[in-house]
Design a binder for these strands. Structure first.
Lengths: 168, 168
DNA sequence: ACTACATAGTTCAACTTTCAAGGACGAGTC
DNA sequence: GACTCGTCCTTGAAAGTTGAACTATGTAGT
């Protein structure tokens, strides 16, 4: 290994890697845009907001602490504050104080929010299917899963607990 | 089950599919965030803006029509207008009128913009390598490329012949 | 030439995201 | 208690994005 700091010749991508990288960027942005539009049209909110409702719907008593929700949705607490404020305005989420920690807040899914989810989930799953799973072979689905897990492992921001949900 | 316009029960995702879908969302958002931060820090712009400069750098005479650039970067013309305005303010891009079509505008990469690219490209490639290619086997890279191409094919919004020969 | 419509790009308003700052509370130490 | 420090969450301003409306120009049909 040569020690030259910034001046080391960069290892550019091979042709194969470059094609794959372009395909990755192309496909992921197309899918993201597609789902964003689908949900904006059918559920009146962007994909990430929908994801928040889903997380809440699967939590015990349909509620999560803000920080917990932010962590599982991979967004900053600031962003979550704004998002929950918006969802609250829609009547789909409500805040509730945490009795054991007065700094804390729960976000909880209202019955109205649950109803939105019930109404729109089938369409959303259909969109994901149509874009992804109905086009891939079972082997490809397995491959994709494995590749994504490898990627995520390498990117896990220094948040040791993220790996250890069973330790909480 | 709810019966709305659609008479068929929704086909939910299998456990495998669900795991893969979660891994996909997790990994792609982590990577996107990572590259956005890396480029914001090292190049002073988000990933998508960097992509615009790259596109321009590879175009003949380092210029592209706005619509063409928007298409190849997969963003709306509106978004591009704003982005180019910002990049113009940085001195990295310039607009130029199109002689053959007075409605048209070229976006062109300035020497200053080229310099930013030269300075920051190695670090960006390194980030992509470290996050993706250095962690995947050659087989996985090939698999990923193929999967992404399949995905993109199903989502291509403006490829008339690809989509609906049998639909309408 | 006239009409009608399509295309290129920008602009405005509403919304979302980011970043830095700040207020409130909890936990540890003296 | 008082001090310090870290955590929980919010806020406000700046930056970015979206979708619709708009201007100007090109194109086709009559």
């Amino acid at each position: 290994m040569v020690h030259m700091g910034d001046t080391t010749a960069p290892r550019w991508l091979s042709d194969d890697e470059q094609r794959t990288w372009r395909a990755y960027l192309h496909a992921t942005t197309l899918l993201e845009d597609h789902l964003d539009r689908q949900l904006q049209r059918d559920a009146g909110m962007p994909h990430i907001y929908y994801g928040l409702l889903v997380q809440l719907s699967q939590a015990p008593r349909r509620r999560l602490r803000m920080t917990e929700l932010a962590r599982s949705a991979k967004i900053t607490r600031s962003r979550l504050s704004h998002a929950v404020a918006r969802l609250e305005k829609n009547g789909w989420v409500r805040r509730e104080e945490c009795p054991s920690d007065k700094r804390g807040q729960f976000a909880l899914l209202t019955e109205e929010g649950m109803e939105v989810l019930r109404r729109t989930a089938p369409g959303h799953v259909a969109a994901v299917r149509q874009a992804l799973f109905d086009r891939l072979s079972p082997e490809q689905v397995a491959q994709l899963g494995e590749i994504m897990r490898v990627m995520a492992e390498g990117l896990q921001p220094s948040d040791p607990d993220a790996d250890l949900p069973w330790l909480r």
